Structure formats: structure tokens, C-alpha cells
Amino acid sequence: MKLAAVQLRATDDRAETIERAGDLLDAAADQGAGIVLLPELFAVPFVQPDPDPEYFRLAESLDGPSNTMAAERSRRAGITVVSSIFEEGEVPGVYYNTACTYVRGELKSVYRKSHLPFSNGFPEKFYFRPGGTEPEVVDTGETGVGTIICYERHFPELSRIVALRGGSVLCVPVASASAPMREVFQLELRAHAVFNGMFVICSNRVGTEGVKEYFGLSAVYGPDGDVLAQAADDRDDIAVAEVDLDRVAATRRSRPFLRDRRPELYGRLTGMGPAAP
């Protein structure tokens, strides 16, 4: 099958941005992609370094215009689409950074970002309530797909959960513009692929938003950490890679990291083991 990362420049015109995103989804589907990932909060500009109460006006419900477009493209093309939105919760004043997975138009998963930064110009704790559940794995009919969101790529426990739950494809929608992070960006994503023996799709924004310059590098990675396809670094684009899903099982046999885990020794990681010295 084929996996695709959509790379997108967001503007203040939500409708126009959603339309361009839809065109990119169509292009990915036309190239045969069965799983397509959109960037983090793809339809609206991302947060700036200084908290701004006016930003909340950009929030939308789960059935708002961003997900409506994603669901329609998923249904029409018979594909899986992972859409990331600034979600307005049902409780007044509660907002989430949310990823929704649609399989042939049907909403299969709602994952809310659980690890939120307040550093390096990303004051996300000001805007979002953290989610309280671990990543799910969605059965697409061909494979299992799990999603973590941007900052969460710095926490290897989350992608390992996706692997342990049977996921073969990890989706990582991001909004990454930090110059220091660019130096380790692909290193981290390749590491997730290698440690878990899975495919990784990462979709980033591109272009200038306020004081931030999003650097793209949207790509698809193989279980050996190889870059299978990468978008252009200066414009809207898609990265589409044909993959052999049997590589996941083969890789996990040749590098049996999941088999050789010793969870009984890891209690310290969750605070449930011996006190740290």
C-alpha cells in the first residue's frame, strides 16, 4: 500500500486553507495513498510565542469544517485520513489539540494531545487541556494506525504503546519551527521507526507564520529508519511512499526489541518502582 504525508502552509483564511488541504488529499489519493496524514491544526495558524486570548476564536467542534472536509475525502476515496484540529470541547472554556482518524469516512478515533509544551515559543498549556488517554490503534482493514502529536515525539513511551497495541503505522502531525529542533527532528522520527519496527508518517507545516518559520521535512519513514519519501522544503507538497507492510513483522523478528522488553524493571519510569536515589 501507499502512505502519504501532506505538507501545508496555513493562512488566516480558514476556508482557503481547507480547500488547499483537500486538493492535496485528492492528489495523494490519486497517487494511490491509502493512509494520509495532515499537519497539526492544519486549517489555522499555529500559536505564537506570546499567549493570545483572541486565538480561541479559531477553535471548532469535532464536526466543524476541518473534519468535515477530511471525512468527506476519506469517504469519497475510500482511504484513511488523520485530521488534526483545534477542538472546542463540550464544556465551555475547554479546548483540546485533537487528532481524528477517519476510515472510509467513518470516525474511528479521537485522540487529544496529552503532553503540552510551554517552551521554545509554544505556550500550548495556555490554550489546551491535556488529553487523558493513551494513543489508540485503529484497524483500517489493511493495518493498524496510531497517532501521537508533535511535542509527544519527545516521549518514546507513547510510540511504544502504539507498537504494543499492534500498530504498524505511526502518524505524527506536527507544527515544528524551532531551529534547534530541526537539527534532531528526523533523528527522533527515525528512532521511533527503528525502536518499534514500524512505519512513521510525519506531516509538518511550511512557511512563515508571524515570527515562526516552519521548516517542512514532512516524510514517510521505514522500519529501518530509512526516508522513503520527503516533501519539498519550501511549499505545499505531499510525500507518498509505497510500502510493504510485511516489513513490520520481518523487522520485529530480526530486531526483536518488543520481545526482549523487561517491563518488570521499568517501574521507576512511571513512579511505581523504587524511589530515585
Rank of each mutant, 00 (worst) to 15 (best):
L116Y: 03
F122Q: 11
I79A: 08
V47E: 12
Y95H: 13
T143L: 00
R75N: 15
R76H: 14
K125W: 00
G64E: 09
G132W: 01
G132V: 05
F126R: 04
E88D: 12
G144D: 02
G144H: 03
V44A: 03
S61F: 10
V47N: 10
I148E: 00
F128P: 01
C100E: 12
G121A: 04
V94Q: 14
P123S: 09
F46C: 13
T143P: 01
I161K: 12
K125R: 15
E60G: 10
A70Q: 04
P117I: 00
T147S: 00
K113F: 04
G144E: 03
I79M: 11
F128I: 02
E134T: 11
G144I: 05
S66Y: 12
G131N: 01
F56D: 15
G141Y: 02
A77Q: 09
F86L: 14
P117T: 00
E54F: 15
Y96Q: 08
Y102L: 11
A99C: 04
V82D: 01
Y95W: 08
L62P: 07
E72V: 09
I161R: 10
G141S: 02
P156Y: 11
E124G: 13
Y55D: 13
E136D: 14
E88I: 08
G89M: 10
A59M: 13
A77R: 13
Y127R: 08
V138D: 01
V162L: 06
V47Y: 04
F155S: 10
S119K: 09
L62E: 13
H115D: 07
P92C: 12
E142Q: 10
G89E: 12
G146S: 04
G146C: 01
R165Q: 10
F56A: 15
S83G: 03
T101E: 03
E142F: 06
N67K: 03
D63L: 09
P123H: 03
E60A: 07
S74L: 03
A71I: 01
C100Y: 09
V103W: 06
T80F: 01
R73E: 07
D50W: 07
S74K: 06
D50C: 10
F126N: 07
G132I: 02
V137R: 00
G121L: 03
T101F: 05
A71K: 07
L58S: 13
E134M: 11
V110I: 15
Y151S: 13
I85Q: 08
V145S: 01
G131Q: 02
S66W: 11
A59Q: 13
R112M: 06
S83P: 05
F86K: 07
Y151M: 12
S61P: 14
E88Y: 05
F155V: 12
S159C: 10
V47D: 10
V82Y: 01
